[in-house]
Simulated assay, not measured.
Amino acid sequence: MGKITFHVDLDNRVKKDGTQNIQLRITQAKKKLRVAVGFSVQKIHWNDEKKEVRRTHPLHSQINNTIKSKLLEVERTYLKSQVTSRKVTASTLQKQLKKEIAGESFVQYSKLRAQQITNPSSRSACKSVLSNLDVYLKGKDLLFEEIDYDWIKDYERYLKKLSNATNTIYNNLKPLKASYNEAIKSGLFEPDKMSPWMRYEGKKAKSVRTRLTIEQIALLEKLNLRPGTNKFQAHNFFLFSFYLQGMRVSDALQLKWANIINGRLEYKASKTEKSRSKKIIQKAAEILNIYRKPRQKPTENIFPFLKDLKESQFADDVWRKKLERLPQ
């Protein structure tokens, strides 16, 4: 059948988040088979010469240990076959490796996948979903093979019994579906039949938002509050966000004077990581003048809620929780 060789490299396909899957390439008689090891990184974090993740990546030690472990396992299996004269093909090793990496555990795979989500908000939401799943499983594991249409419906009914709204149930099941399908796409798992998620139709209700009327906004504008009080700060903060077309609270909290450029507000939305540019209307400019000081530093926050807190002092998840508690 020919000699089998093993190499580690990055998948050529770049995912939406800018990362590439780390994969083990198994070659036999010019036939190449690939297996993703369960992690993906940006190319800047990959040392192609050493075939390992650079120290610049926060999970470099964990990922490199996983790579070495899986590579050692298939090499050991291959060498053992040579001694015992048992025929082992690249395809056999590929299937074995897929099973070992996924561990057949949907929970384990999903938690590893959640750690790789770069957006703090999305990562926290995914971890919350998996935490809810852990409660449902009562400490038991959940294998890929155990997830079928009936299991999905059972979990949906469980979420309903907890009095969760339709959209909450949808948001708890959506990440599980994405994780399951990602495992299939990356070659970590192959269902015997089509994905059970293909049969499941998740429901999402249209959100009904209560909006303030123009008259109510006018009343808020006329409020006469004592400067420096919490009510005064919250009042200005809300109106400024309203004048800027409804900025997210987390984005408005982190605004700095450097974001004010030529009469426009230039910033990057924390949830979507997309750049935003909005014209500062007169009423918003008047609020800015309340907080403007002589010799204003560009790095200073516009609003006082964060005080001396700096994002660089905290891990992403911790920083996000602090933002959620503000303003108080």
Rank of each mutant, 00 (worst) to 15 (best):
L72V: 04
K87A: 08
K98R: 15
A90F: 02
P196H: 06
R113G: 00
L143S: 07
R76P: 01
L97H: 06
K87R: 09
A165I: 14
G202L: 10
V83S: 11
R76G: 03
L133G: 01
C126Y: 15
Y155W: 12
Q94P: 00
A102R: 03
Y155S: 02
K161G: 07
M194T: 13
S69P: 01
G202D: 04
E182Y: 09
I117H: 02
L137I: 08
V129A: 10
T89H: 02
L142E: 00
L133K: 04
K177M: 10
K95S: 07
G103H: 06
L130Q: 06
K185C: 02
V88W: 01
I152P: 01
I184P: 02
S110C: 08
S124P: 01
Q115N: 14
T77Q: 11
Q82E: 13
I152T: 02
D141S: 13
L188Y: 07
Q115G: 04
K140N: 11
Y149K: 12
L133Y: 05
Y170K: 11
V135M: 07
Q115D: 13
T168D: 06
F144V: 03
E156Y: 11
K70L: 06
L71R: 09
V107N: 00
V135Q: 07
K161T: 15
Y78F: 12
L112T: 08
T92I: 10
S124K: 13
N119F: 12
N167C: 08
L133H: 06
V129L: 03
C126M: 12
E156D: 14
S124A: 12
E104L: 11
A114T: 09
K138N: 07
S85E: 14
K153V: 14
E201K: 15
K160V: 13
A165F: 09
Q94W: 03
S91R: 15
